[in-house]
Simulated scan of single mutants.
Amino acid sequence: MNLTISGHHLEVTPALREYVLTKLDRVTRHFDQVVDINVMLSVEKLKEKERRQKAEVNVRVKGKDIYCESAHEDLYAAIDQLMDKLDRQVIKHKARLQEHHHESPKRLNGAVTEAPQ
Rank of each mutant, 00 (worst) to 15 (best):
R96P: 02
V112F: 12
V35P: 00
G110I: 03
A55N: 02
H9G: 01
H30E: 12
E44V: 11
G63R: 02
L97P: 07
V90Y: 08
E48M: 01
M1E: 06
E50W: 00
Q53D: 03
I37A: 15
Y76F: 10
G110A: 05
D84R: 01
K23T: 01
N2P: 00
K92M: 10
K64S: 12
G7Q: 04
G7P: 09
D87A: 05
P105E: 10
V43M: 06
L86S: 05
L108A: 14
I37N: 09
H100R: 15
E56P: 01
V90Q: 08
L97I: 10
A115R: 01
L82M: 05
D65P: 06
E18D: 14
L21Q: 14
L10T: 02
H100D: 10
E99P: 00
S70Y: 03
F31S: 04
H100T: 15
M40L: 15
N109W: 08
V27D: 10
N109Q: 11
I79T: 07
K85A: 10
K45C: 05
P14Q: 03
E99G: 11
E103T: 11
N38P: 02
R51I: 10
K47W: 01
A71T: 10
D80R: 00
R52K: 09
L97A: 09
I5R: 05
D80H: 05
H93P: 04
H93C: 06
D25W: 02
H72D: 14
E18Y: 00
Q89L: 14
E69A: 08
S42T: 06
A111I: 13
K92N: 13
D80V: 04
I66S: 12
L3Q: 07
A55K: 00
I66H: 08
T13L: 06
K92E: 12
V61M: 03
D25E: 15
K62D: 13
M40Q: 15
P14M: 02
K85P: 00
Q81T: 09
V61N: 03
E114T: 07
S6R: 14
L3E: 11
A95E: 15
R26L: 13
S104W: 05
A77H: 12
V112T: 12
G63H: 06
A115I: 06
L75T: 01
E73Y: 05
L41I: 04
C68K: 09
S6E: 12
L24D: 09
